[in-house]
Simulated scan of single mutants.
Amino acid sequence: MEQILDTRERILQATIELIMEKGFKGATTRAIAQKAGVNEITLFRHFNNKKGIVKAVIEKVSYVPSLSKVLKEKVEWDLEKDLMMFSKLYQQLLDENRDLIMIGLKEAALFSELQQQMTDIPRQLKERLMEYLNSMREKGILIETNVEAQAMALIWMNFSFFMSRSQHDNKITDLTEEEFLKNTVSVLARGLTL
């Protein structure tokens, strides 16, 4: 079993490296197999096709499991503290995956399967946030509101800051990540708390 995981992991790592070097289109199954030190038949045995490999790569680098775990295990049921904790981790995970995210955004329109998988990440994140916000409402902490709209506001606020910094560094604002999150999360939390 360890050999299977080892081979699978080598294929995924080779795919990530090739995507970073050549984009999704340039990461052909032949190039992936060569870089991973396996033949294409082994690659297809593990993943069926390139779509399967791309799906596995996106699942591997997805930040949803980490953020979901935080929303289940680390919450203090203090809206501002919880949203700040979530936002800081979200920023960290976006930053760690910056290159793949930027390549994915650039090339998603070219590959329908990539576009669908990239859409699944924020959708799943929205669902986890909605669960948290609904729990806060049931506890009598959150005002009556459209929790989907509030979850998306938090996601978009964070992702927009990440994109602005990724594309423009600090040419638009000199606010640090800490200053930005402290102010925006605070206002959002105050507006949603009973």
Results as ranks from 00 to 15, higher is better:
112 S>D: 12
107 E>W: 05
32 I>C: 07
47 F>S: 01
42 T>R: 09
130 M>L: 05
104 G>Q: 02
163 M>E: 03
135 S>C: 08
16 I>G: 05
104 G>K: 01
91 Q>D: 11
72 K>H: 11
15 T>L: 04
41 I>V: 15
118 M>C: 07
194 L>N: 11
93 L>P: 04
46 H>R: 07
116 Q>L: 15
102 M>G: 00
176 T>I: 01
23 G>K: 00
139 K>Q: 14
65 P>C: 07
58 I>W: 07
179 E>A: 09
146 N>K: 08
12 L>M: 03
29 T>N: 13
74 K>Q: 15
141 I>R: 10
6 D>Y: 10
156 W>K: 12
112 S>H: 11
16 I>T: 01
6 D>V: 10
172 I>P: 02
121 I>N: 09
99 D>L: 13
158 N>M: 05
92 Q>W: 04
14 A>P: 05
167 Q>M: 15
151 A>P: 05
186 S>R: 12
45 R>I: 09
151 A>V: 02
145 T>N: 08
164 S>D: 14
173 T>Y: 11
164 S>G: 12
8 R>H: 08
178 E>G: 02
150 Q>Y: 04
51 K>T: 11
79 L>S: 02
4 I>Y: 10
27 A>W: 03
35 K>W: 05
65 P>L: 06
149 A>S: 13
90 Y>V: 00
46 H>M: 11
26 G>T: 06
155 I>G: 03
170 N>C: 09
152 M>H: 07
37 G>V: 08
28 T>N: 03
69 K>R: 15
165 R>Q: 13
28 T>G: 08
63 Y>L: 13
105 L>M: 15
129 L>Y: 07
12 L>Q: 00
155 I>A: 05
85 M>N: 13
57 V>E: 03
41 I>M: 12
149 A>T: 11
127 E>C: 04
167 Q>V: 11
121 I>G: 01
50 K>D: 05
5 L>E: 15
27 A>E: 05
35 K>E: 10
32 I>M: 06
40 E>A: 12
90 Y>R: 11
35 K>A: 09
39 N>L: 00
124 Q>S: 13
23 G>V: 03
82 D>C: 09
68 S>C: 07
103 I>V: 15
89 L>M: 13
155 I>E: 00
99 D>S: 14
146 N>V: 04
109 A>S: 15
51 K>S: 10
127 E>N: 09
17 E>G: 10
155 I>S: 02
107 E>S: 03
43 L>A: 05
36 A>R: 00
116 Q>W: 11
111 F>T: 02
101 I>Q: 00
94 L>Y: 12
101 I>P: 04
173 T>A: 08
27 A>Y: 08
166 S>F: 02
86 F>S: 02
63 Y>T: 05
3 Q>R: 15
26 G>K: 06
176 T>F: 06
37 G>R: 00
184 T>S: 10
102 M>T: 10
39 N>G: 11
98 R>P: 04
99 D>I: 12
19 I>A: 03
3 Q>C: 07
39 N>P: 02
89 L>C: 07
83 L>Q: 03
153 A>L: 14
118 M>H: 04
146 N>W: 04
164 S>F: 08
70 V>D: 02
56 A>I: 08
161 F>V: 01
99 D>Y: 09
46 H>N: 15
152 M>W: 15
13 Q>K: 13
26 G>W: 06
105 L>S: 04
109 A>I: 09
37 G>F: 07
183 N>G: 09
103 I>P: 06
38 V>C: 09
186 S>P: 00
92 Q>T: 14
